[in-house]
């Protein structure tokens, strides 16, 4: 790993000032995505600005219609949060299935969202639940946020401060994980609520996507049977030695059905 300047600001302003002064700075929350990348020397920022000490980025608030999670909240905290479990149990369950316990103790929602790994779980949760990414300067809908593989509209000096989820009527997440890495080969969040009926898929393609045909079928009849015969086009999916595009397409259908069944 290349050396860098480390900053541990306690306010957003300090963090932004550090970034402004840095030649090639990078914000880091829990570091569970960034540090592995830096260890492989696939990233070598001049400055690493830790967001972990900024109190304003912590905390979970639920008001009955929305749940707002500070960007520095860890996956373990989301998983264990009574407020999240009450409002969106699918989100609490999903967070409890990310990585492993130690990764969940450090990794944060803000970091995972900013990293935009196409096989991460949060993109499906955000898009499926119709969440909004809140930054220090604007709000971005999840669908506009995830633009491609590791690609988001975030400016280099922009900080995610929170993610706001509308509380759905029902939702469930079903994941088929890569046996080696634990990342999703096909992770499907199905939700219905004010944001409509959504089916969001992570892991299968180069970016999280919605399956409109499934959403329409579920709008007409919210049941596993309604998904019968609806498949995604494997031409749009990733192919790897352990999981071809064709297999992923099949798994999307299976996981979508299982998620609908889990919605109860």
């Amino acid at each position: 790993m290349e050396n860098f300047e480390f900053h541990g600001p306690s306010t957003l302003d300090q963090a932004l000032a550090a970034m402004g002064a840095a030649e090639d700075g990078k914000f880091m929350a829990g570091g569970q995505s960034l540090l592995p990348v830096m260890k492989l020397e696939l990233a070598a920022p001049s400055d690493v600005i830790s967001l972990a000490g900024i109190e304003a980025l912590r905390g979970i608030e639920a008001d009955g219609t929305t749940v707002t999670i500070g960007s520095a909240v860890t996956h373990a905290e989301v998983h264990e949060s009574e407020a999240v479990r009450q409002a969106i149990p699918a989100l609490a369950d999903m967070a409890g299935g990310i990585g492993d316990p130690q990764v969940r103790n450090r990794g944060t929602i803000g970091g995972a969202v900013a990293h935009a790994d196409p096989a991460a779980d949060y993109p499906a949760a955000l898009v499926g639940l119709g969440a909004t990414v809140v930054t220090d300067r604007r709000e971005i809908s999840a669908e506009d946020f995830f633009q491609g593989m590791f690609d988001t509209p975030l400016e280099d000096d922009e900080i995610i401060t929170a993610v706001r989820f509308p509380v759905p009527e029902r939702a469930a997440y079903a994941k088929f994980a890569n046996q080696a890495s634990g990342y999703a080969i096909a992770g499907v969040m199905v939700a219905s609520g004010d944001a409509g009926i959504r089916v969001a898929v992570t892991g299968a393609g180069s970016c999280v996507f919605r399956v409109t045909a499934m959403e329409e079928a579920l709008a007409a009849d919210f049941s596993a049977a309604a998904l019968q015969g609806i498949a995604v086009d494997s031409g749009d999916l990733i192919s790897e030695p352990d999981a071809s595009a064709e297999y992923r397409a099949h798994l999307v259908s299976v996981m979508a059905r299982r998620a609908v069944e889990a919605c109860g």
Binding site: L35, S50, Q102, V103, N105
Partner: peptide, 11 residues
């Protein structure tokens, strides 16, 4: 519990 290989000493 955390993985000390995926954390900076400064953190």
């Amino acid at each position: 519990s955390v993985k000390s290989c995926t954390m900076l000493a400064l953190e």
